[in-house]
Amino acid sequence: MSRYNIAVLVGSLRRESFNRKLATALARLAPQEFTLKQLEIGDLPLYNQDDDADQPAPTKRLKAELQAASGVLFVTPEYNRSIPGVLKNAIDHASRPYGQSAFAGKPAGVIGVSVGAIGTAIAQQHLRGVLAYLDMPTLGQPEAFVQAKEGLFDEAGDIGPNSRKFLQGWVDKYVAWIRHHAK
């Protein structure tokens, strides 16, 4: 039985997204008492503050899922040296109206994968600034700027042998972070 339910926000809508594959593979590295569930963010309308008084149904669903979670894992690609609009839109929806953020106090982790040599380093730094404002204690070390290259994933979609030790270590630190901070 799962003791820790982790909300996973993947910042890509692409069917064959490396970040979605990474999120799925990382979930398999987590201990049994952790359930990592990827939340739907592609159905959210563009955030409009005029809707704060009566938020759209997809926003209400997202906020309820986040509020029920023990922590949040952000798996982000890097678009134009920042986070994707779809991820920022989801963050804006779930953090509003002011004073009713579904993120406040939730422990977080940030990771991502890209074909570029620096992975998603700059997007992750931008996201960390947003999470600090949202009052989310965020795992600082180890940082994981993963490059999508041959062998990252095996035939079954698991982490390949060359990256397994590093990413298992990252998951282990994230799990310890959640255990320490989850309410």
Rank of each mutant, 00 (worst) to 15 (best):
I6M: 14
A7I: 08
V8I: 14
L9K: 12
V10D: 03
G11H: 05
L13S: 07
S17C: 03
S17E: 00
S17F: 01
N19V: 04
R20Y: 02
A23E: 02
A23C: 05
L26D: 01
A27S: 10
A27G: 13
P31F: 13
F34G: 00
F34L: 08
L36S: 04
K37E: 14
K37P: 04
Q38H: 04
L39P: 05
E40Y: 02
G42W: 09
G42M: 07
L44Y: 09
L46Y: 08
L46W: 07
N48Y: 07
Q49I: 08
D50Q: 15
D51E: 10
D52I: 06
Q55E: 14
P58V: 12
T59V: 08
R61V: 13
L62A: 15
K63P: 08
A64N: 09
E65T: 11
Q67A: 14
A68P: 13
G71W: 00
L73D: 05
F74T: 12
V75F: 13
V75E: 14
T76W: 02
T76K: 04
P77F: 09
P77A: 08
E78P: 06
Y79P: 04
Y79Q: 02
S82P: 01
S82C: 05
P84K: 08
P84F: 04
I91W: 02
D92C: 11
A94H: 08
A94F: 05
S95T: 10
P97Q: 14
Y98M: 09
Q100F: 13
S101K: 03
S101M: 12
A102L: 13
A102I: 12
F103R: 09
G105D: 00
P107Q: 01
A108I: 10
G109S: 09
G112D: 02
V113C: 09
G116K: 14
A117P: 13
A117D: 14
I118K: 10
I118T: 14
T120E: 09
T120P: 03
A121E: 11
I122A: 06
A123G: 10
Q125F: 08
G129W: 11
G129I: 08
V130W: 08
V130M: 11
A132W: 10
L134E: 14
D135F: 05
M136G: 00
P137D: 01
A144K: 12
F145S: 03
V146N: 07
Q147Y: 03
Q147N: 07
G151Y: 09
L152T: 01
F153K: 01
F153M: 01
D154S: 04
E155P: 04
A156W: 03
A156Q: 15
A156C: 10
N162Q: 15
N162L: 13
S163M: 13
S163F: 13
S163P: 02
R164M: 03
K165N: 10
F166V: 10
F166R: 11
L167Q: 00
L167Y: 01
G169V: 12
W170F: 15
V171E: 05
V171W: 01
V171N: 09
D172Y: 06
D172W: 03
Y174C: 13
V175N: 12
W177N: 06
I178M: 01
A182S: 02
A182Q: 00
K183M: 01
